[in-house]
Amino acid sequence: MSESVSIVIVSHSPQVARGAADMVREMVGEEVQVAHCGGNPAGGLGTDVMAIKSAIESVYNQKGVAILVDLGGAETNSEMAVEMLPAEMGERVVICNAPIVEGAVMAATEAAGGAPLEAVKATAEEFLS
């Protein structure tokens, strides 16, 4: 079976992140790998660069990883995490400019058909247009 682009969900809230990931698994199925993380390093609301980096690494494959984020800090921290990956890995990881839950479902649906990373990102971002 060919690999699919994986999805990483990054929210300020661990519960939101887990809920969105559950929704993707339930609606789209298990063929797309989904990782999630939320909460700052002290366990409060926020995001954690190292946790984001580990989440990406846990589902990374050659087809790449699409990240869905919620508010500002989640995006900034995700960009930082991507830059901390080895370069050849980082260039196959993108952050989608899309609502976190809807974008994740759309991205995963596109990914399930084996679509390339650019198409997965475009589909997630198309949701608002």
Binding site: M27, V28, G29, V105, T109, A112, G113, A115
Partner: peptide, 11 residues
Amino acid sequence: RPAVKLTKSAK
């Protein structure tokens, strides 16, 4: 949910 299934089936 059905919309996702439809898309996946088409793909």
